[in-house]
Design a protein around this nucleic acid. Sequence first.
RNA 1: UCCGCGAUAGCUCAAUCGGCAGAGCGAGCGGCUGUUAACCGCUUGGUUGGACGUUCAAGUCGUCCUCGCGGAGCCA
Length: 433
Amino acid sequence: MSDIALVENIGEYEGKTVTVQGWVADKTDKGKLQFLRVRDGTGVIQATLFQKTAPVEAFELAKRIPQESSVRVTGEVRKEPRAPGGFELSVTDMQAVQLARDEYPITPKEHGIEFLMHNRHLWLRSSRQHAILRIRATIIKAIRDYLDNNGFMLLDTPILTPAAVEGTTTLFQTDFYGEPAFLTQSGQLYNEANAMAFGKVYCFGPTFRAEKSKTRRHLSEFWMVEPEWAFGTLDDYMRVAEGMVSYIAQTVLELRKTELQVLERDTSLLEKVAAPFPRISYDDAVKIIREKGDPNFKWGDDFGAPDETLISEQFDRPVFVHHYPTEMKAFYMAPDPDRPEVCLSADLLAPEGYGEIIGGGQRSADLEYLEAQLVKHNLPREPYEWYLDLRKYGSVPHCGFGLGIERTVAWICKLDHVRETIPFARMMDKMYP
RNA sequence: UCCGCGAUAGCUCAAUCGGCAGAGCGAGCGGCUGUUAACCGCUUGGUUGGACGUUCAAGUCGUCCUCGCGGAGCCA
């Protein structure tokens, strides 16, 4: 029995005989010459069999084997410029683990999105999906590395929660031992408690929004990283956020060249993603919209998707929009002491029309202000009692932000829709597979 | 929730004015010693999303329904 080799390391085995375990992604029958392209999860390698030299059983199997059958293929690794990937396996032995029983639905030709989403469990095997999801994994690791290396501690927040964080967004309700409970829409409030206990923290997990949104930027279940730290200000937040996003872009450019190539991503645009990012105030953003878009845009309105695109088009890298109207933002945002109608908040808009990927800001440290905000926002006090405690026992200025993973992946990969950025997207009216 | 578009073979699509429902891919069989979404020949393919209606005649026109796609609002 020869060594099991992974396709991603196949170059290390040149001249040696190894076994690759995987699936027949595709094949070409040339009569007395058979080409199989075998995928093992780490890559695809071409396995070649000549009728003249290969064992009879192996050759016959290769000739007959249906697409997506699972196989063990043994052969000598040869450098071969004509083969995709540059290496090829000259097969000396081959066994089927299982012969695919039905016609494989996904062919190398085009398919519609409805069909592909219905076959998502199989679509994941294709090279484009491999590229996207490897980049997703790299982005997540880059985020974790950046935060871990900058003194942040991972401290996860609960998924089952007793109340809305921001009150406005629709929540998924579930049953908690007979009591209503909700799937979290943000780790934000618990993060603040964690930050008061540990200083610099972050949570990383799934987030649920029952919004009836049907756009390329929405999922019902998505992943978010939320750093939060004590003694942090609005400026501190923007510095950490731009550092993290730059690090994400640089890491993907460095480690995922092949994948970006598969996706035909213009990497020159990603190379520009380096701190510092431009910062403009909400007031200035409104001016841009009035000049180049809607002249009647009202101060105090939130930006629509076309407005965000217009703003981000003015810059060649992500842009912060800060000091939003206090009314527009969550109840816990700290108002600007010099100008209370705006708050110490900022969103980061990604380039190329990808819109908001980060929202965050400085939180109010003031007990009386937050008590008044709860009343103003019609929120019950009782579920927030513990949150108010944080302002009783050593309240300090602090800040934090949330970055949406799927929107970030969509932007880095330049995808049309976030549904391809997660293995199994949960969208309005869509739970299969 | 609102606006727009769509549903025809396993997949991607075509079908002129309402007049015999087609092609490519896939699959099956055969051929080919360098294929890369191969190529060549043959074969296989249908409750035209559902219900009702108009008509001598409906994939095509009308009403209702279901599902999907795109966008808006809202958000990350």
